[in-house]
Write a protein that binds this DNA or RNA. Structure first.
Ligand SMILES: [Zn+2]
Length: 320
DNA sequence: AACCTTTGACCATTG
DNA sequence: GCAATGGTCAAAGGT
């Protein structure tokens, strides 16, 4: 009579939604469908173009086009990927288990239900205007985003990994493999992610790109991408030796979540964005304006949970 | 005071 | 149906 309901009700929107014939999944889930606010931010972006963000630049896109033969505009990203795979550069990493213990049967097949991007972040998310949220909700828009991301990556001259997940969960997952440490690790990751395709661009990647997240703000802030995040969980996944942290955009109306994997040193090994922000970045300018508090990290022990009949945001996600 | 992190337990999905 | 895994919740505690 107290908490059970709360727990039950919760939000049972986990992964999986492409299989309409899911047994215990009465909720109708949609692939890409977010509650779009009355007005489109797209306009805002196109119209004003925030000072902080670079906005939309057709430049990179074009570049991308060059990279991916067959990608016209915003077609299905699958196509794009296909094109990429067709590239001679594409090389599936067969070696697995450099990490050690991750005996994942994994499906090596490349299924294109949900695109997944992985790129060694020579450039931190900051560089990207908004990898996870441009305010575009349509699949087309999403494609665009991907392209942008790719473009950015390409522009950065960093090796980029295009990975495809077999069957992701909800909307989309943008994965950035931040690997300032070295390529070796990145390779490792690629291998670890058995079920994904890895596309490597042979480019001289100046390692000087790595930001100061090596030791300073590594643990402090989870990759500033211009948005505020609240950590709501941490787990140790088998595939990775490092714990994975789960973050949620602080905006209650924003469904965006992100999973960040950090090594003990604080190096971000993997960042997975899910969904897209339906709002502009809270802090376009980061001058001496410290509206928030200190960007210090908090650390304390957790507690026990008792009961709470409240379910904050459970209508968003990917289609209420 | 508001907000965020920590953390164990709960839950959902998959094999 | 159970076990394993991953994802989320929410109390407690810090900043
Ligand atoms: Zn957001």
């Amino acid at each position: 009579m107290y908490n059970q309901m709360a727990k039950n009700e919760k939000e049972q929107q986990q992964p999986k939604q492409q299989q309409p014939s899911s047994p215990s999944k009465p909720v109708s889930s949609r692939p890409i469908n977010i509650t779009l606010p009355p007005r489109s931010f797209t306009e805002t972006f196109l119209s004003s173009g925030p000072p902080g963000t670079s906005g939309f630049s057709p430049g990179p896109m074009t570049l991308l086009s060059g990279f991916f033969p067959g990608s016209d505009d915003c077609k299905s990203f699958s196509q794009l990927l296909s094109g990429t795979m067709a590239s001679p550069n594409f090389k599936p990493t067969d070696d697995k288990s450099p990490a050690g213990d991750f005996s994942r049967p994994g499906k090596l097949s490349m299924v294109p239900p949900s695109p997944m991007f992985t790129m060694p972040l020579g450039l931190s998310p900051v560089a990207l205007p908004d990898s996870s949220g441009f305010g575009l909700f349509s699949p087309e828009g999403f494609g665009m985003i991907h392209q942008q991301v790719l473009a950015q990556a390409a522009q950065a001259n960093s090796n980029m990994h295009v990975q495809q997940a077999p069957a992701m969960s909800s909307t989309q997952f943008l994965t950035f493999i931040n690997n300032p440490a070295a390529h070796q690790q990145q390779q490792m990751v690629g291998s670890v992610t058995d079920s994904r395709v890895t596309v490597q661009e042979p480019s001289d990647f100046p390692r000087s790109y790595k930001r100061s997240e090596s030791s300073s703000l590594a643990v402090d802030k989870p990759t500033d991408d211009g948005y505020n995040w609240r950590k709501y969980g941490q787990k140790q996944v088998k595939g990775s030796e490092f714990p994975r942290s789960y973050y949620k955009c602080t905006l209650p109306i924003c469904p965006v979540k992100k999973k960040v994997e950090r090594s003990l040193d604080g190096q971000v090994t993997e960042i997975i964005y899910k969904g897209q922000h339906n709002h502009e970045p809270p802090r376009p300018d980061k001058r001496g304006n410290d509206t928030g508090r200190d960007k210090r990290q908090f650390k304390q022990s957790g507690g026990l949970r008792n009961s709470h009949p409240i379910s904050k945001w459970k209508c968003q996600e990917n289609g209420r």
